[in-house]
Write a protein that binds this DNA or RNA. Structure first.
Lengths: 206, 206, 206, 206
DNA sequence: AATGAATGAGCCTTCATTCAT
DNA sequence: AATGAATGAAGGCTCATTCAT
C-alpha cells in the first residue's frame, strides 16, 4: 500500500484534487459571469457536472470557495510583488513594475474574466469583486503604503492607496474587455496616471 | 371620492405620488443598508408599510426601482454639471468644480449611505453600486469626454474617463465612511490626483 | 366595508381560518400516523393540498403547529377538569370522573387517532406524543397533585402522577385502537387500576 | 494474514466482531443522547471512527441496529425473567422480583441514559423508545400474561399488561433521571402501584 | 472487508409574483 | 388602487446509500 505512496498518491486522491479544482474553476467562472452576490452554490456545482451534495465535501459555503480563490490568487501574485519591493529601484519604478506585473498577471491568469461586465448587463451590478482581485489589492495596497512610508507623498494614505488601486483596477478591467488585450498600452496609461497623480501631491517635508 | 376631483390632483393622485415616493425612499434606504444584491422586494415594501402587492402597481421589479432612483439622482445632479460646463472656466477648473459638486452632492443627499460597506462586512462585497452613483457617473463621464474633445489629453478616452470616475468614486466612498465627513479634504485630494494625473498624459498636438 | 363586519368577516378571513384549520387537521393526522419526530412540514402541507410556502403564512415551524394543537386540546379539555375539581366529591370520585372525561374526550375528538401505532409499525416508534395529550396530561397531573396535597397518598408525587398518567395514556391508546371503541370498559379498567393502586400506597398521617 | 488462521477466529473474524460491537455501542450511546428519531446513521458511525460505508457491512439501516440492540437487551434480560418465573413463588412475588430485576437492569446497564429526556428538552419528544426497553417489555408482557393465565385477574389482558408495563416504564424512566438513582425506592413504588392495582381487579372465578 | 467520496433525493425556507377581494 | 394570502420555483443543506479503490 505505502510502497507507491511517493507516486501520484492513488486514484482517489487524484480525483479529489481534480474535483476540488473543478469546483474552484467553476466558481471563478460563475463569479466572473454573474457577480459574487448573484452566484448560488448550485450555480457553481451545476457547472462542474458534479452532484449537488459533492460541493459540501469540499467547501462549507460560497464564502469558503471565495476565500480559497482569494488565497490562491494571493499565493501566486504575492511573491512577484515581494520581489519587486526587494529590488529597491525607487518609488516610481516600483509602481511601474507592480502595475505591469499586475496587468500581466490579470491577462495570463484570467483571460476569461472579460465576460464579467458584458454578461451582467441586465442587472445593475457594477463592480463585482473577483476573488483574486481582493487578494491582489491587499498586496498592492500594502506595498504602496510601505513605499509611502519611505518619504513618498504625505497625502491621506487611505485615499491614496484607494485611488491607485481604483485606477489599476478600472483600467485593468477595461483592458481585459478589449480585443486584442493590449497589456502594455493599458499598463502605460495606468502608470502614467498614477505616477503623475502622485507627483502632484505634497511630498513629505516638502 | 370623486367629489374632490376639482382639486389640482385628487386624493388618489396624491396618494399615488406619495406611495411611489415612499417606495423609492425605502428602496434607497435598504439598498444603502444591505447592498443592492441582498435587498429583496419584501425588504423594500416592508419598510413602507404598504402591502406586498402594491409594490407592483409602481414598479415591475427591484431593477426598475433601482433605475428610477438612478434617474432621480441624475435629474437632480445633471443641471449642476451642465451649469459648470457652461461657465467656460477651462478644463482643470471644470474638473475641480465637478468633483466638488459631486462630493457635496454625495454628502448632502446621501449622508446615510456610509453604512453600506460597514454593514456588509461579513461578506466579500466590495463595491456596491448605489443608484445615484450610476447616474452621476454617466454624467461625469460625458462631461469629461466632452472636455477631452476640446484639446485635452489624447489618451484612450475610455481609460481616462474610467480612471477619473474610479478615483472620484473611490475617494468619495471613503469620504462618506469617515466621521466627520470632510468634503473639502476629500475633494482636494481627488482633484489633485486627477488633475496631476491628466497633466502627465500627452496633450493633443503635443 | 365595516357595515358587514359583524357577519362572517369576509371571504378572505374565512379562507384564512379554514386554511389554518386545514393545516392543524393535517398536522394532527400526520403526527398521529407517523409520530411527531418523523413528520416533516411537507408531510403536513402535502396533505392539505396547499402550496408549500403557504404553511409559513400560518406557522413558523412544525414545533409551532404542535404547540397550537396542544393549546387547542388544553383549551377544550381544561374546563372539564376544572369543573370536576370544583365538585368536591372526593378523591376517588374525581379520579373516576376525570378518567371518564378524558377517555370520552379522546374518543369524541380523536377517533381517527387509532392509526398511530398500527401505521408506524415498520419503525421502532413506540410512544409518540400527540399534541392534545401533552396538554391534557399537564392538566391531569396538576389535578392529581392538588388532590394529593389534600391528604392523599404521600408517595413520591412525581412517580405517582407519572404512573397514573401512564396508565390512563396506555389504556386510552389501546382503547382507541380497538373496534368498536368501548369507552366505558376502558375507563373502568383504568379507574380500577389507579384507584386500587392508590389505596395500596401509604396515606398521609397513616 | 491467513498465516494466523489457525487461531480460533482469525484476525478478520475478530475485527468483524469488534466492529459490530463498536457500532452497537455507538448506537446505544447516541440513541440515549439524542433520541432514536433524531439519530442519523452518520451519528452512529462517526462515533465508531469507522468509515461510513462500513456501517452497511453490518447493518442495513438504523432500524436494524435498533433491532439488534433490542435483541441484545432481550438476550441478557430474558434469562433473569425466566428464572424468576421458574421459582414458583406466586404471583405477587413474581411481580415484585421482576420489577426489581428490571429496575436493577436499567440502572446497571444504562446508567448513562438518564440524559435522554433532558437533552431533548427543546422539542416535544416525550417518550423515546430505548432499544432494550422494547425487548424487556416484550418479555415482561409475556411473563405477565403467563401469570395472568394462572388464575390471575381476568381483566382485559392487553389493558393489564399495557398498564403494568406503562407504570414500570414510567417510574423506571423517572428513576434514571434522578440523582442519586434510588432503585429500591422506585421499585417499591412501582410494585406497590401494580400489586395494589391488580388486587382491585376481579379474579378469575371470583 | 474497509474506505470515504459521490450521489441525488428530499427537507426547510424564502421570495417574487399573482390575483381574488 | 390597495390588500395580503397563495403560489411554486429555487436555494442551502443533510443524509442514506452506493461503489470504485
Amino acid at each position: 500500500m505505502s510502497q507507491v505512496a511517493y507516486l501520484s498518491a492513488g486514484k482517489r486522491e487524484q480525483t479529489k484534487v481534480q474535483n476540488r479544482q473543478a469546483i474552484l474553476d467553476a466558481a471563478r467562472a460563475v463569479f466572473a459571469e454573474m457577480g459574487y452576490d448573484n452566484v448560488t452554490v448550485r450555480d457553481i456545482i451545476r457547472r462542474t457536472g458534479l452532484a449537488a451534495g459533492t460541493f459540501y465535501n469540499y467547501f462549507k459555503s460560497k464564502e469558503e470557495v471565495f476565500a480559497a480563490l482569494a488565497d490562491d490568487g494571493a499565493r501566486r501574485f504575492a511573491p512577484v510583488l515581494k520581489e519587486l519591493r526587494g529590488q529597491g529601484k525607487g518609488f516610481e519604478a516600483f509602481v511601474r513594475d507592480a502595475i505591469h506585473a499586475y496587468f500581466h498577471f490579470l491577462e495570463k491568469e484570467h483571460a476569461t474574466w472579460a465576460a464579467q461586465r458584458l454578461v451582467s448587463e441586465p442587472h445593475p451590478h457594477v463592480y463585482g469583486p473577483t476573488p483574486e482581485m481582493g487578494a491582489v489589492f491587499a498586496e498592492v495596497r500594502a506595498a504602496i503604503l510601505e513605499e509611502t512610508a519611505r518619504g513618498g507623498p504625505v497625502a491621506d494614505p487611505d485615499f491614496l492607496a484607494g485611488a491607485c488601486i481604483a485606477v489599476a483596477r478600472e483600467v485593468g478591467d477595461r483592458m481585459l474587455e478589449r480585443r486584442p488585450v493590449d497589456v502594455e498600452a493599458a499598463a502605460d496609461f495606468a502608470v502614467s496616471m498614477i505616477v503623475s497623480g502622485l507627483r502632484g501631491l505634497p511630498k513629505a517635508g516638502g
